[in-house]
Simulated assay, not measured.
Amino acid sequence: MKLVKEVIARFPADAAILDPFSGTATTTLTAAERGNSALSFDINPFLIWLGNVKCRSYSVEHLACIQDDARLAIGRVPSLIKNDNWVPPLFNIERWWSAGTLQVLAALRAGLVEVFGEPTEDRTDGLAWVAFCRLVIETSAAAFNHVSMSFSSETTHHEVEHVTYLYLAILDAVLASGSAQLQGTGEVVEVDARAIPKMGRRFSLVVTSPPYPNRISYIRELRPYMYWMKFLKEAREAGEMDWKAIGGTWGIATSRLNEWGPNSKVLPEILTDTVGRIAESGGKNAPLMATYVHKYFYDMHLHLSSLPNVLEPGAELHYIVGNSSFFGNMVDTPAILAASMQMLGYSNTVSKIIRKRNCNKALFEYDVSASWPG
């Protein structure tokens, strides 16, 4: 966040800013708060919805209406809890919530639907649903305090009063965060960053943080929200989305790696060397992981190939990325990306360390910057 603010601050308020890997829309919101016009790309419908909810301005009156309507929904919970309410078809859901807690959450969701309707892009009361998303995690047995989630050995039953009180507390915090009026504009649209089309808008600054090549599936972490919000209906949809995502390796996305191969596109020699070392390392599933790294940078090369379709001449790029290691073989992400940029005609490529990522002395985050001559 600090680096994003520092980079954006060097540009005039009328500079158009792009984040081709939106995630939770941090860059777009930061730019809009400052007064810039910003756009983000994503392929995940939940993240598109969430980003646009975050990047709206809300009047005091509108926020008060959301709060009042949420209290109406909560008032419906005692009667709704007696019904057979819908629950998400999340695999092994009992390790997330106890049967009693799940019953309360389902009743609260039904109440919110009665008052607000299902969460959709064209509604402006999404903050109530953002609070519900936070609630389902707060009441779950899941923990996100390391590179992947884990679960407590036992789920906790939460009574109706506790769940509704917690929801209102979370909603108050969400509404408070949405009270600031944005000076600029921000929007998230559905675009595959590997194949960016020509658009009516062009951008003078790109600030983004794509997924890292570390085999962590972001869709896996988002599943509980996406199921509860009905952006996912079955597990296969999650795997399909992960396959489209750069760096996705969960479910069917992993099995498809065995059949994947690059087209005849010429890629940087440093990538070829890295992939070869991983494949020959002798580690478990080493050839599969070598293919994973190959596909990651192949997809990033496709992205950088299509990015000029929306760049102003002289546009500046900043990619926040992390390196990784497979079976003792370092994947020098900044060097490989810089080589792709240079091969594709970008200039002034520079890589600098931002911070150390964890206790592993060799893992860092970098800012890989470049410019597009046009």
Rank of each mutant, 00 (worst) to 15 (best):
E280Y: 00
E280V: 09
S281A: 13
S281T: 04
G282L: 03
G283V: 12
N285R: 15
A286W: 09
A286G: 11
A286E: 09
A286I: 07
P287D: 02
P287G: 06
L288V: 01
M289L: 14
T291V: 06
T291L: 15
Y292Q: 14
Y292N: 15
Y292D: 07
Y292V: 01
Y292T: 05
V293Q: 08
V293P: 05
K295C: 04
Y296T: 05
F297M: 08
F297Q: 06
F297S: 04
D299M: 00
D299C: 08
M300C: 14
M300T: 04
L302C: 09
L302Q: 14
L304N: 04
S306L: 02
S306E: 10
V310K: 10
E312W: 00
E312A: 13
G314E: 01
G314M: 04
G314H: 04
A315L: 12
E316W: 05
H318T: 02
Y319T: 02
Y319Q: 15
G322S: 13
G322R: 04
N323G: 06
F327L: 01
F327Q: 03
G328Y: 10
G328N: 11
G328P: 07
N329T: 12
M330S: 13
V331N: 06
V331S: 05
D332Y: 06
T333E: 13
P334G: 01
P334Q: 08
A338E: 05
S340E: 02
S340D: 01
Q342M: 07
G345L: 15
Y346N: 09
Y346Q: 03
S347Y: 02
N348T: 06
